[in-house]
């Protein structure tokens, strides 16, 4: 018993001060890219050739990256000699609408907005999440799980993963949804009482991720239900996921 107390003292208090305070993210973390279409050279399409998922949508003045498909591998940044593509370690990435995931030149990126009306009022203080893992690599799941550890402690915002869809307000989907999992996912969503929200976590659940286009999968959660919140990344950093969830339930402090 003494040992337990001693180790408790040694381990200290570990829950991060975020979102009020700041956290230091790894300098090499690849977060939101910044594009300079004016630097893109005529006739060059190196970035498109190296991109594993076809996430580069346009070149030249229309240079754009679809963060829904992007794996944040940074290959395009390496390939782009004039430096038109640069990844920053900005971790805030989650959006409400699928089309808001497209990054272009110039400022502005529309992060997810709080739910409004009845759902907004219902979920602001307590939002229970049923997670369904459907065909990904289990890294997105790991980074959702980590939100329950004492470092992130999502319980302090009323967020909790629950076992039964009957107890859930939200379904968080990971993976590209293989045919094998489509029915199970559809049944889980159907078993979740309305009003409910659907959250797509990771490139797989948004657009198929590294498995996009495989005949065995359905390229994400939308084959069952459109997402109310899309959290890009492969996998998204846990803070990116928590940031998205807090924005959705309106718990992100103003100005952050």
């Amino acid at each position: 018993m003494l040992q337990v107390l001693l180790s408790r003292w040694q381990q200290g208090y570990r829950t991060m001060a975020w979102p009020e305070g700041d956290v230091v993210l790894p300098d090499r973390l690849r977060g939101r890219p910044v594009l300079r279409p004016e630097a893109c050279r005529d006739g060059c399409d190196r970035c498109r050739q190296v991109c594993p998922t076809g996430a580069i949508l346009g070149l030249g003045p229309t240079l754009a990256i679809d963060l829904g498909r992007c794996l944040f591998c940074g290959e395009c940044e390496r390939a782009c000699a004039p430096g038109a593509i640069r990844f920053t370690n900005e971790h805030r990435l989650a959006t409400g609408r699928r089309e808001d995931l497209i990054v272009r030149g110039g400022p502005g990126y529309k992060l997810a907005e709080p739910l409004t009306g009845e759902v907004g009022a219902l979920f602001a203080r307590s939002c229970k999440i049923r997670q369904v893992s459907a065909g990904g690599c289990n890294a997105c799941e790991a980074d959702i799980n980590v939100l329950g550890t004492l470092a992130f402690d999502m319980g302090r915002f009323g967020l909790q993963v629950v076992a039964s869809p009957r107890h859930a307000d939200a379904v968080a989907v990971t993976g590209p949804v293989p045919h094998q999992m489509k029915l199970a996912l559809a049944k889980t969503v159907a078993a979740t009482p309305t009003p409910r929200v659907i959250i797509a976590v990771g490139a797989c659940a948004i657009a198929g991720g590294p498995f996009a286009g495989h005949a065995e999968v359905n390229d994400g959660a939308a084959c069952v239900a459109p997402a109310d919140l899309s959290i890009p990344g492969c996998p998204p950093h846990p803070l990116t996921i928590l940031d998205g969830l807090l924005r959705l339930i309106g718990r992100m402090p103003a100005g952050r």
Partner: peptide, 22 residues
């Protein structure tokens, strides 16, 4: 089998830009 997403079949024909990610 629920996680079957066709990786081996997709690797055939590589290596290509997607191979390291698979």
């Amino acid at each position: 089998g629920y996680q079957h997403r066709g990786v081996e079949r997709a690797l055939a024909g590589g290596p290509d830009p997607r191979t390291p990610h698979l």
